[in-house]
């Protein structure tokens, strides 16, 4: 088990390998479809500092307001593949070191992870309550009015956020390996016949 603090320096990033299980601490920023489109099309400069060596989280949380405080009521990962058209550019433009999501990402992202030194952290899909409990503070929120709560960019402070690295900065993707491995088994099952 690796314990990591975000922001994550590029020196640390290259030490990480696909298959490592990680407990993540520090700041992560939620971003879904609308936020990604916005980061790429408008290239707002004010996020550069926040995202430099930072971690993006593919998540649209359920959020409650108690007095002046925001409370994260549910916050599991959403499907990362939807951000495939944007992610390579987001990593390059903003110097992001990590992406948290589920389901893995494609070749373009894998290349960007290698080129700009970043990793993909896989969180367990549907783990909304366990992961919400890892959020110790909501530091800020951007574009809440414009995008609505699930699509807004929530700046979260987390402790012991459990993830597994499935794509690293050396070109390894467990998703690719699994697709090929299970594909070979599928072929043998088909050849054998089942009914």
């Amino acid at each position: 088990m690796v314990i990591l603090n975000s922001p994550i320096s590029k020196k640390e990033v290259v030490k990480l390998r696909a298959g490592d299980t990680v407990h993540l601490n520090g700041i992560i920023v939620t971003a879904r479809d609308v936020a990604h489109k916005y980061l790429i099309e408008k290239k707002p400069k004010e996020y550069k500092k926040l995202l430099k060596n930072g971690v993006l989280y593919h998540c649209g949380p359920v959020v409650d307001r108690v007095g002046k405080k925001w409370i994260i009521a549910a916050a599991g990962p959403t499907t990362s593949m939807r951000q495939e058209p944007y992610t390579a550019e987001v990593i390059r433009e903003y110097g992001v070191s990590g992406i948290i999501g589920k389901g893995g990402m494609g070749d373009r992202t894998l290349e960007a992870l290698k080129k700009y030194k970043a990793v993909y952290f896989h969180a367990i899909g549907g783990l909304a309550q366990v992961l919400a409990e890892c959020v110790v503070d909501v530091k800020d929120v951007f574009m809440l009015k414009e995008f609505g709560s699930p699509e807004a960019m929530w700046v979260l402070d987390v402790r012991d956020f459990p993830v597994t690295i499935t794509m690293d900065s050396h070109g390894n993707s467990l998703h690719k390996t699994m697709y090929e491995k299970s594909g070979a088994i599928l072929n043998s099952l088909i050849t054998k016949g089942g009914l």
């Binding site: 359920v62 009521a73 549910a74 549907g126 783990l127 909304a128 309550q129 366990v130």
Partner: peptide
Amino acid sequence: SIAYKTLQMILKNIKLAKEKSLPMCQDT
């Protein structure tokens, strides 16, 4: 194994959601 730990975590999440009457997955 990672499969074992993942299922364990999922079971923990199911229990938490029930106790708190909150969505087990944020995608409702």
